[in-house]
Each structure stands twice: as C-alpha cells, then as structure tokens.
C-alpha cells in the first residue's frame, strides 16, 4: 500500500500544477474578462492549498480577500473599462517577442536559483512556534495566529489597518469617477442581498468571536462585512447624505483609532506601548477586533464602490 502514502503528494502536485497553469492562463489570456475569472479561480485553488498546508486562517483570508474582494475589485474595474477594452489586441498589449524571450530566460535562470535556495531551506525548523506556544497563556487569546496578529505583532496589524485606510484615501483622492450607477438592481439579487446582508453581520461577528481560539478574525470578518456592504449597495441601498460625511469617516477610521488609542492608553497604566495589562488582553483584543472589523468592512465596501461619497 505504499502508493497510498503517495496519494497526498500526488494531490499536492496536481494542486501545484493547477496553480501554475491558472496563473499562466490568467496572465496570458487574450480576453481580460477571462483573465480575471481565471485569477479568481487561482485564488480559490490557493485557498485549497492553504487548507492543505494547515493554514485555515490564510485559506479564509485568501478566499475572502485574495479571491473575493480582489476579484470583485477587478471585475468592477473591468466593468468600468468596458466596452472598449473587451476586445484587446494581444500583440499590442505585450512587449515584443525580442524582449519577451530574454526576459523569460533571465527569469528562468533567477528562479532556478531561488528554487535551489528554497530546496536548501528544506531543513525542519520550528521557527518561532515554540516561543509562541510558550507565551500563549499571556496573550489573552488561545489561538496562536490571532495571538501573533493582535498581541505579539500587534504593531504590524495596527499599521496594516492604516494601509487599508490609506488605500481608501488614495482611491478617494483619485476618484473623478461618479458613484456606481443608480439603476434599479435585479430583483432577485436585491432579494438575496436583503437576505444575506444581515446574515453576514452575524457571520462577521462569529468570525471575530471564533478568532480567539480557532481560525478567523477581524480581517476575514471585515471582508464578510464588506461583502455585505457591497451587496446592500448593489441592491439599491444608498447612504443618506448626512451619513456620508463625518459619521462614515468615523466608521472608516474606527479600527485604527481604537487600536491606537488602546495601544497608547496602556502606557498610562505603566505598560509598554501596545502591551495590554494582565487579564485585560482578551477584552482589549476583542474590542480592537470589533472596531477593526467594522472599519475593514466599511473600507472594503467603499473601495469596491470606488467613487467618493
């Protein structure tokens, strides 16, 4: 039954090749729409790969953000490019073959090197997991990834929230584009949205909650919430004018602001920056995650909609 032990490896090989094939097709397909769809498919397969690698968090994030939000953004952008861009002249859109060939050869050489290095790295090493395990008790949450994300390396996460906000500010600063069209949505879609949006709120809350001891967390939850916002938008909801001003902006900055505020406030209690006092880690983390979820959802929805309010 030796072949049975090889079965997982075979599956992995197939997955890996699928990844590469999808990536290749996504990058070279002459039709942009097809390219985007293939890219989304790539994201989904990547999700599977992450599951195979026991990285359920990343799988969730990959599907929600990598494939979902990115895919939605790409499709929305594509829709705004249509119809002129649907038929693209492949030859004009690529560098001349005389350039392509050396680039390809160079890349193959470089990547062979990189591949060899990766091969070299194939020495089992625990990384920091032992250290994380050793101090997980102090982290306030039982799930290592969340502990790293919101406590051990919370500073990164704070800035990551800032990156999202920054992207939105950037998009708004650029946007001459009007709002998404105000045409009446498909009734079926609208109905589904009305059904799904409230459920998504619950799912998002659940993801935040579950993140404390299992895969999940603010970013996955935020993307679910963002999707809810997008759906509501598609089903014809509009923010009233009074809400698109500072109330909306407040929601957008809430994540960073709460995170920063808590991170700074602890200094007043004799703690180091972003160092939660004993016993307060879990409530602090949950509060931060909730605020972050809200902001991430709002930011993602706003990014999708594109035009500034």
């Amino acid at each position: 039954m030796a072949w049975l032990s090889l079965l997982p490896l075979a599956i992995d090989l197939v997955l890996a090749l699928t990844l590469l094939w999808l990536a290749w097709r996504a990058l070279t397909s002459p039709d942009l729409f097809r390219a985007v769809v293939l890219f989304i498919a790539l994201g989904l397969v990547l999700g599977l790969v992450w599951v195979r690698l026991d990285a359920v968090d990343i799988a969730l994030a990959e599907i929600a953000l990598g494939a979902g939000v990115t895919g939605a953004l790409l499709l929305a952008a594509l829709a705004k490019l249509q119809p002129a861009e649907s038929q693209t002249d492949e030859v004009a859109m690529m560098a001349p073959i005389a350039l392509r060939l050396p680039i390809a050869l160079l890349l193959i050489a470089l990547l062979t090197g990189l591949g060899l290095v990766v091969w070299q790295l194939w020495v089992p090493a625990p990384g920091l997991s032992n250290l994380v395990d050793a101090r997980l008790d102090e982290a306030g949450v039982a799930y290592p990834v969340t502990a790293v994300l919101l406590n051990f390396r919370g500073y990164d996460t704070l800035l990551e929230l800032a990156v999202l906000l920054l992207a939105l500010i950037g998009v708004w600063s650029l946007s001459t584009a009007p709002h998404l069209g105000d045409e009446e949505p498909e009734p079926a879609l609208a109905a589904l949205s009305r059904l799904l949006a409230p459920l998504m709120i619950l799912v998002a809350a659940y993801l935040v909650w579950v993140g404390a001891y299992a895969p999940g967390g603010a970013f996955q939850a935020g993307s679910v919430l963002g999707a809810a916002g997008v759906l509501l938008r598609l089903s014809g909801w509009r923010l009233s004018l009074s809400a698109t001003g500072w109330p909306l902006r407040l929601v957008l900055v809430l994540g960073v602001a709460v995170f920063a505020f808590i991170g700074l406030a602890v200094i007043g209690f004799g703690q180091p920056l972003l160092g939660y006092p004993q016993g307060w880690a879990k409530p602090a983390i949950l509060t931060i995650e909730l605020a972050a979820t809200l902001s991430i959802g709002a930011i993602l929805a706003a990014l999708f909609i594109g035009g500034r309010p």
Partner: peptide, 20 residues
C-alpha cells in the same frame, strides 16, 4: 507539529496589504 503561526500572521498582513 503545528505550523509556525508567525509567518501565517505575516501572510495575513500581506494579503490585506496586497488587497489595498
């Protein structure tokens, strides 16, 4: 063993940055 959570957290961060 359990996979190392630190790179996982880094990748989560990375994905968000990439989306942005």
């Amino acid at each position: 063993a359990e996979p190392d959570p630190v790179p996982q957290a880094m990748v989560l961060t990375g994905i968000v940055v990439a989306v942005a």
